[in-house]
Nucleic acid binder design. Structure first.
Lengths: 343, 343
DNA sequence: GTTTTTTATGCAATCGATTGCTTTTACACG
DNA sequence: CGTGTAAAAGCAATCGATTGCATAAAAAAC
């Protein structure tokens, strides 16, 4: 009726009883006369009483909300991760507050402040591309807020975390390309201080070394994310005196754009250049040739992180749990040189 | 130091003054002796005092949080829209709580309840595929919660809304296909009770009629979203006695998958079948042939919705504002039959 | 019919801020 | 020295719930 929602006090006043009795009746507490309880419940239903969550939050010192900081909502990997987080959190009765740092360390800092001020019960964080320090996370530990870092974790912090086997999968992928007869494998990767980029690069390097292939700096492209000029990168690679015979890209979007440019230049994939992506976007099955990629299970990473956080909130894990989820190599046509050459 | 954060009371006790003075000093209120204020501010900084947002929320009866309900976080369109929402909201000092209905009306209902219980200051809603009623939104109006529906709005509700010119753009797109010489235009669309699907279908129909083309029910596919079997749909179309010479798909993902299957069957795009998508995914520029599509400005829709909501929260608009954002037709290769035939 | 026990309810503090009103303090002026 | 006034600080209510403790009412025991 009025603008303000009905409160426990309203019900008490109407029924001529005290707030406490109403509260106890609603929370099925015991020690309330059956008749009174019924009256309260009936009126509550009639007035569509809904407890004020804020008052509860204040009293109980928790918000049933978890905060999430990701680099970019639009990034399909993070979108899927958030979806996994939401599913797990909602199931457990938690709400999810999502902030994007837009790959900026300063925004990340301000997101964090805001989420802490909101008194979220826990935090799920994947750091921005720019973030190469960790002191802005100090407040989390000072205030003992449960936290799980996922995917892009902070190497210097000993916290709960969920990652994938970046090193191993990059090693495996590179090894596979070598077995396909590739000898000049280019890679486009993120900044070295990012956990994922670093480990993937390391896996790539070690696979080269193990196969007695020399690392050629010409074949290493450092991706600047949004500012990337993939076309220029690709041209640069193709125009090298010794152009690469394989490209291991940071993600499927870049891989597909590169394929497009390579094909326009009249080169054949995978015969001239094999292309391998990362993330397994739904679309990658349908480009030509179908893109080989790494299945990076974003949804599972998100869900696992949320579950880890929730158990931490419940006070279950006293030592930071570190969980690894396995990615897997998905071979399609864009790297199957042996088959292609056999044709 | 201790687990619990420092409060205004702690500061008051340490300095031997009252809570009110501390509060006034912190809020620069006036009527506080300069010396006292300095002492308070200094101690607050030293103890890293952060006001308890929950207490403030309770007192001020607002949360500085807006709630968002979308069908799917993973859907690129909604991911972009949420990104726009976040940007606009954060700029204005608001946090964003995102829920996904997973295209289920019941989940949508439960999301809504949860957000109302959290006492969000306003709601941004894009309804689920399943939602063909609106009574679960009643609580919003009873409680007079500011709300903006966007993209997938609820036809039966007279609320603020942000949509695109679905009808016009579908009409224009179909008209364009006809001008390209297409006479048997198939379309794959969502359920009729969805605002977007309905209007797009209507635009498609009216364009056919205007050009004296008969509507052929064989050419209409109703998409079931996640459960879709695009391959079967496409085969069905191709295997018709009179297969279509154009397909206007609900979104780029479906369009690209269809292109893939059409090409595998040895048909040429756009010569045999022209393919038109919707949404303008980044990837669509790079498939072969490059996909013509409708640029549906998700980010802008999100940002505009958030801004509309914020002005409503400020109490600026007393009548529901309805805003339309223009989509635009993006012609690439997958529909350029005149050029293709000219070749 | 009184005492004891059980059952049901109410009072008031609490969570952490804000804020209207009162009170104290200090200072100026007649 | 008394009084008026302004400046500074404190008291207590408020927001909407929960909950320990006190108390009232009803039921049981003697």
């Amino acid at each position: 009726m009025n603008n303000h929602s009905v409160t426990i006090k309203d019900i008490a006043k109407i029924l001529g009883i005290s707030k406490s009795t109403v509260s106890r009746a609603l929370s099925e507490h015991s020690d309330v006369h059956a008749e009174t309880r019924e009256k309260v419940l009936a009126l509550a239903r009639k007035l569509q009483y809904q407890p004020n969550a804020i008052a509860l939050n204040l009293k109980q010192q928790r918000t049933n909300t978890i905060g999430v900081i990701i680099p970019e909502t639009e990034n399909p990997f993070f979108a899927r991760a958030v979806s996994g987080i939401q599913r797990a959190a909602n199931q457990a009765g938690y709400n999810v507050m999502v902030c994007q740092s837009s790959e900026s360390c300063r925004t990340e800092e301000s997101n964090l402040k805001s989420l802490i001020a909101t008194r979220v019960d826990g935090l799920l964080i994947s750091i921005s591309r720019e973030t190469d320090k960790s002191d802005h996370f100090d407040a989390i530990f000072q205030k003992k807020i449960p936290v799980v870092f996922f995917d892009r974790i902070c190497k210097t912090l000993d916290t709960a975390q969920v990652t994938t086997n970046n090193y191993e999968i990059a090693f495996e992928a590179t090894q596979y390309l070598i077995r396909q007869g590739c000898r000049r494998i280019a890679t486009i990767t993120g900044p070295r201080h990012l956990y994922t980029s670093f480990n993937r690069f390391q896996g790539y390097m070690d696979a080269l070394t193990k196969n007695n292939l020399e690392f050629n700096p010409d074949y290493l492209l450092l991706s600047d994310f949004s500012k990337d000029n993939i076309e220029a990168y690709t041209r640069h690679l193709i125009d090298l005196k010794e152009p690469p015979d394989a490209i291991f890209a940071k993600n499927d979007l870049i891989a597909i754009e590169m394929m497009h440019i390579i094909k326009k230049r009249g080169l054949s994939i995978p015969r001239d250049i094999a292309v391998l992506g990362f993330n397994n976007e739904p679309i990658s099955r349908f480009v030509e040739p179908a893109l080989s990629t790494v299945d990076h299970p974003a949804h599972d990473i998100g869900a696992a992180s949320a579950e880890l956080l929730l158990s931490q909130i419940k006070g279950e894990n006293h030592h930071p749990v570190k969980k690894t989820i396995k990615s897997s190599l998905l071979i399609r046509e864009s790297t199957e040189r042996l088959v292609a050459i056999g044709n």
